[in-house]
Write a protein that binds this DNA or RNA. Structure first.
Length: 857
RNA sequence: GCCGGGGUGGUGGAAUGGCAGACACGCCAGACUUAAAAUCUGGUACUAGCAAUAGUGUGAGGGUUCGACUCCCUCUCCCGGCACCA
């Protein structure tokens, strides 16, 4: 019999599929559209790893399924090739990334084809293609016009290894850079800032109706971090100064005994500059404290834990509610970037405030009662009461629940003009410039002489007109326009602004981009006055290209000339129906891409707001030793090696079978061999004389029923991304089919082949063509239908319990599966009789499922 | 500390109120073989028993139910995320 040797047909099929155009079908608008997408990869020099194969196979299965179900499918692939890893790899290899990236892409594509991934390659592009990044730049200019982007000197996170500024989201909790793993510092640099915060509410609202994993939704919510509270203004005794504190708990304000401001607070600056007079000793103390706390690295802050430090300013803030004079302290537990950079201390009801008060001997006043009306004084950290309760010692709030008290005091403070309700967010604006070579050049020009005349794009005729017509979306304010003096958008018709090829492009570390060295490229005439001007030399971050690539797939067509931003095609295909990728992008790519789409929707460029309707996460693939695969551990599995040894189908089936799709798995070569055996056993059955027949009389009816149940289960499991149980069901069917040579009709056998096709595209098409003589690929065949009446079997097995414990079971014709017959039959069983005989009992019968005798006494 | 996910045989896992352990890996025994690999057949939660069978069993304890891996409460451990966010 013909042996199962995948190497003898897999490569040939890749060529046949390509030649027949199996995966580049005619766009058929009569069918319902379906857009399936894996997060596109950064094409590293190392090639695909087995983690990639898991995401891509998972997306491939559902895509192939939907195509067979008759959907008009968009299932593309492309390359996210700008960014630090590509550039760092190129520096190491002493090459230009422009030369290296195409080689890496070639290799990735070759490996993907080897895996039998059914991409429509006519849609392929790389974010580094000038036609593509020209549009990324165009979008940048549109965002600029709206006032969402501006340049400013800003303290930023700075990676000394990568020598570039970074966004908040790129810094890991341990203070290292998300890409390179090295420690981060801070630096003040001129940066392009993307005002994502103006979309905080929009991004939060959009999460509502998304079919995404719970954890990812929660992480985005938390990252946006919306908090509703109130800013309370406290005037400072004997000085012309007001300190504003943000709080979500104004209900406790009768218990406020001190105020703490961040070391960066403007009041501190006024004291240190001598603008506000204090005695020399206090000034020196504050100076010393501020200096040490600003010099602290994040690592030192973390190491210090919760220990409270601080310095007294010598000033007092007046609490209008109580008339109390509250000492104003400086401490670094108050963060300058959150709220107002100042907090009011209520030590009885906030653990941090308590720790601070205890450290410096400040009075503690209880204003909320604890459990059972407890109003005892608070002197230990575990007594600090942050939970709900009833107000005490709080004047007109006494007796109220804290939530009612919060509303009442807010109304009161606003009425008196002592404060106003505000909403605060954790989300920060997005630092959007990188001082690196390998990214999209920012299409802006700076003209010194126009800057002196306070001219900018906003003062041009075009700028004026635009700002007027876009007032409802545009968040441009006067201050921002003044900040942008001298800055002009390059003529959009000249896009793409191509990245110059440079012999030497290493990062400088001075805060200046390597592009500044490309003197010819940098100097341009000013679009406004025509005088000498300079191009912006920073580039966009690696996230830029991935913020809209899923739109580009809708209209990209390699077989045609220069693509245009085709709103009709976008409308037709978007949003993405199924988006598959790792959970590591929870607050990076997935937040940024949503932000761009919200803006584009406001601009009416697109007719939807949320780009990804369904998100499914893939679990990591660990090494056989349960550690992460890594060159240094020497435990890396290369998928191409696996394919040459076992074939792509075995690898695919193995990775889909090992565990639920979203769960982490450890590599297991013996389990992979099990997947290979499964395919091999099927192969033999499809090549055996005795397993199939053309004679209806020889058909095994039970087997046919099992087949139809399996077809149904596999289809259901695929759309629930339960690939492991889909494969288990097919294995179960195989076991039945193998036993004692029961027969299927050839037509039924073909159905079995079809439901396996999304998982094992090579073997199934090989058999489809060579055993069944089909002329067209199995992959463009229609998902099997079946006669439902054939599913029902004639007999049922009904388990019989006594007091909920299973003691026996009865086999009964389905027509007789009513309570009386089942009970009668059960009582004939000797095993049962001994539990039931001579005793009183109730009977619970669940139609066709179970029988339970409830014996009394 | 807070948020999210989880704890089931030797291993990966299945079952989401109705026969716990499907399916697979591993292991044991057998067949084929000079032998090994491959392949095939049978067995494989734990305890007692030659066996039929009985008892126990889904992290721990309690509850709801005729019936709980599944629902509720308390606790515990593991994984992921966030964390001096006022």
């Amino acid at each position: 019999m013909k042996k199962y040797i995948p190497q003898t047909f897999e490569d040939a099929l890749i060529a046949i599929w390509d030649q027949e155009g199996v995966y580049t079908p005619k766009d058929d608008s009569k069918k319902e559209k379906m857009y399936t997408l894996s997060m596109f990869p950064y094409p590293s020099g190392a090639g695909l790893h087995v983690g990639h194969t898991r995401i891509y196979t998972g997306t491939d299965v559902i895509s192939r399924y939907f195509r067979m179900k008759g959907y008009n499918l968009l299932y593309p692939m492309g390359w996210d090739a700008f960014g630090l890893p590509a550039e760092n790899a190129a520096i190491k290899a002493k090459k230009n990334p422009m030369d290296m990236v195409p080689q890496n892409i070639e290799n990735f594509k070759y490996q993907m084809n080897k895996l039998g991934l059914a991409y429509n390659w006519s849609r392929e592009f790389s974010t580094t293609d000038p036609e593509y990044y020209g549009m990324t730049q165009w979008l940048f200019t549109e965002f600029y016009k709206l006032g969402l982007l501006y340049k400013k000197n800003t303290p930023v996170y700075f990676c000394p290894t990568c020598k570039t500024g970074l966004a908040e989201e790129e810094v890991l909790p341990n203070g290292t850079h998300e890409r390179c793993g090295n420690l981060i510092t801070r630096k003040e640099l001129p940066q392009w800032i993307f005002r994502i915060t103006t979309y905080a509410d929009s991004l939060l609202d959009g999460l509502k109706g998304l079919d995404w994993p719970n954890g990812i939704l929660e992480m985005q919510k938390k990252w946006i971090g919306k908090k509703e509270g109130i800013n309370i203004h406290y005037s400072i005794k004997n000085v012309e100064e007001t300190v504003t504190c943000f709080t979500t708990r104004p209900d406790t304000n009768f218990g406020a005994t001190f105020v703490v401001i961040a070391p960066e607070h403007h009041f501190v600056k006024r004291i240190l500059s001598g603008e506000i007079a204090v005695d020399e000793k206090t000034k020196q103390e504050i100076e010393a404290y501020v200096a040490t706390s600003l010099a602290k690295t994040d690592v030192e802050r973390i190491a210090e834990g919760r220990k409270k430090t601080g310095a007294f300013t010598g000033f007092y803030a007046i609490n209008n509610l109580t008339g109390r004079e509250m000492p104003v302290w400086v401490s670094d537990f108050v963060l300058s970037g959150f709220g107002t950079g100042a907090v009011v201390g209520v030590p009885a009801h906030d653990l941090r405030d308590f720790e601070f008060a205890q450290q410096f001997g400040i009075e503690i006043i209880r204003v909320v009662s604890g459990k059972d009306g407890d109003v005892s004084p608070i002197s230990k950290p575990e007594q600090v009461q942050e939970d709900a309760g009833t107000m005490v010692n709080s004047g007109f709030l006494n007796g109220l629940d804290i939530h009612d008290a919060t509303q009442k005091i807010m109304d009161y403070l606003e009425e008196k003009g002592w404060g106003e309700r505000v909403v605060s967010y954790h989300l920060r604006d997005w630092i959007f410039s990188r001082q690196r070579y390998w990214g999209e050049p920012i299409p802006m020009v700076y003209c010194e002489s126009c800057a002196l005349k306070n001219q900018s794009w906003f003062t041009t005729e075009q700028g004026n007109a635009f700002t007027k017509t876009h007032q409802t979306i545009s968040k441009v304010d006067k201050e921002l326009q003044n900040n942008m003096a001298g800055w002009f958008i390059i003529d959009q018709k000249t896009l793409p602004l191509e990245l110059p090829y440079m012999e030497s492009y290493e990062p400088t570390g001075t805060g200046e981009s390597p592009l500044a060295q490309a003197t010819e490229w940098v100097s341009v005439p000013c679009p406004q006055c025509g005088g000498a001007a300079r191009r912006e030399t920073d580039t966009m971050p690696n996230w830029a290209g991935s913020c809209w690539y899923f739109l580009a797939f809708a209209f990209w067509d390699k077989t045609k000339k220069q693509p245009v931003f085709d709103q009709e095609q976008i409308k037709k295909w978007l949003p993405v129906d199924w988006y598959v990728g790792g959970a590591e992008h929870a607050v990076l790519h997935l937040l940024y891409a949503r932000f761009w789409m919200h803006v584009l929707n406001d601009l009416k460029f697109i007719d939807f707001r949320e780009p990804f309707l369904r998100l499914r996460n893939v679990g990591m693939v660990l090494a056989e030793d349960h550690r992460k695969m890594s060159k240094s551990w020497g435990n890396v599995i290369n998928p191409t090696d696996v394919v040459s040894e076992y074939g792509a189908d075995a690898l695919r089936v193995y990775e889909m079978f090992m565990a639920p799709f979203n769960q982490e798995i450890s590599w297991s070569t013996s389990a992979l061999q099990g997947a290979f055996r499964f395919l091999q056993r099927l192969w033999y059955l499809f090549h055996s004389e005795t397993s199939m027949t053309d004679n209806e009389a020889e058909v095994n009816r039970k087997l046919r029923s099992k087949l139809y149940k399996t077809i149904e289960k596999v289809g259901n499991d695929i759309v629930e991304i339960k690939y492991n149980t889909a494969i288990a069901a097919m294995m179960e069917f195989l076991n039945d089919w193998e036993k004692n040579g029961p027969k299927l009709t050839r037509e039924d056998a073909k159905k079995m082949l079809q439901i396996l096709a999304p998982f094992a595209p090579f073997m199934t098409d090989e058999i489809w063509r060579n055993v069944f003589g089909e002329k067209e690929s199995i992959h463009i065949s229609t998902w099997p239908t079946f006669d439902r009446s054939q599913i029902e079997t004639e007999e049922l097995v009904i388990p019989v319990q006594v007091n909920g414990k299973t003691r026996s079971s009865v086999i009964i014709p389905i027509a007789d599966a009513n309570k009386d017959s089942v009970v009668k039959k059960a009582l004939e069983e000797e095993k049962l009789a001994k539990y039931v005989q001579g005793r009183e009992y109730d009977v619970i019968y669940v139609e066709k499922r179970i029988l339970n005798f409830v014996v009394k006494g």
